[in-house]
Simulated assay, not measured.
Amino acid sequence: METTLGIIEGFYGKLYTKRQRESLCSFASKNGYSYYIYAPKNDRSLRRAWMDDFTEEQSKKLKTFSSFCHAHGMKFGIGISPLGVTEELDRKLPVLYKKIDTAIKEFNTDIIAILFDDIKLYTKDEGVKQKQIVKDIFKRLKGKEIRLIFCPTYYSFDPILDKVFGTRPEDYFEQITEDLPSDIEIFWTGNKVLSKSITREDIENINHRFNRKVTIWDNYPVNDGKFISKKIYTREFSCREKLDGTVLSHAVNPMLEANLTKIALSTLPLCYQEKTESDIGKYRLEQIKKLFKSDNSKLIEYLNLLNDEGIESLNEKQQKDLRKICEKQKTAAAKEIIDFLNGVYKFDPACLTS
């Protein structure tokens, strides 16, 4: 397989515990994924308070997880969202450089992602400023075997981005790509922020426009938005056929439920292997059986309802029945369903693109 697969922990909402993150990383490494980028929106050290130094506790956490990734054959990455950096470049850019240097030296980071997603444009030539920042970082990384990935403010054609962050400049894509070194990767979520389908034609179109193969940031099965937070996505990946070699890399943004998200994640590699829909569907059921240590048909029926219709489709009796099934399971995945029913994974209003 030519295209590499990875995890981009880039959602809003409740942060994973150490145990959840390591379990997901270990699972991914055994199922065809080769890297894990740590970039949760609610980690203040990478977004809201990105200009502050990493605390001793945070440094220890990232060092430990980096080591865990490497021990499991996974590359480790960090995604930084430098809010407001283009407003005061002279003051803020050196801070960003320092943050990146720290990530590389102290955490043995293999991938640096500079994330301008969900950040408003301050000027009409914001794309030029974003590009220059990324180019400067690229120069600083010269000679180091480190991947650099750039997520633009407009990372899809989806008009929801214009609605929330203002109308994109007509030449925004030209601003960010003109003279951008070809080794700098660009994140793209598909034609929509939540793309139900990503076709080879879609990718060839954006590859041509960006003059490089894009790296997909796949917002399936993530469930951090106002409406998608009412669902648990355990259906297999679909409508992502014949992408191998056309996509440079494919990173998946997982659900807030770190164990349940393994069900969908396990099926993406099969899409790249061009397995049939039937085979992928059967594999999904096998994963459910492994995760819950059961092939309870009623549980699968409820998982399908939560995926397709959401929690509001279950009446009080059904929720009680599902809770009873999960209480008997005594597995981490079953506990996540109980937590979901209890509102633990409630919608975070900070998620603007919902």
Rank of each mutant, 00 (worst) to 15 (best):
8 I>E: 07
8 I>K: 09
17 T>P: 00
17 T>C: 01
23 S>G: 07
30 K>E: 09
36 Y>C: 03
41 K>V: 15
49 A>R: 08
50 W>V: 05
55 T>E: 01
56 E>D: 10
61 K>N: 14
62 L>F: 02
62 L>M: 12
68 F>I: 03
71 A>W: 04
79 G>V: 03
79 G>T: 09
80 I>R: 02
84 G>E: 08
85 V>H: 00
90 D>P: 05
100 I>C: 08
101 D>G: 02
102 T>M: 00
115 L>C: 13
116 F>D: 06
118 D>A: 13
120 K>I: 12
127 G>F: 01
129 K>Y: 11
134 V>A: 07
137 I>A: 13
145 E>R: 14
146 I>L: 10
147 R>T: 15
147 R>I: 11
147 R>Q: 13
148 L>D: 12
153 T>V: 01
163 K>F: 04
168 R>S: 08
169 P>C: 04
169 P>V: 04
172 Y>H: 07
182 S>P: 02
184 I>R: 05
186 I>N: 05
189 T>F: 05
192 K>Y: 12
208 H>T: 11
209 R>G: 06
211 N>R: 15
213 K>P: 09
213 K>E: 08
221 P>E: 03
223 N>W: 04
225 G>H: 14
227 F>C: 10
236 E>A: 15
241 E>V: 03
242 K>A: 11
249 S>F: 04
258 A>Q: 13
259 N>K: 12
260 L>W: 09
272 Y>S: 08
303 L>Q: 08
307 N>G: 10
309 E>R: 07
322 L>D: 00
325 I>A: 04
328 K>P: 08
333 A>E: 01
340 F>W: 01
341 L>K: 01
347 F>W: 07
351 C>D: 15
351 C>W: 12
351 C>L: 04
354 S>L: 02
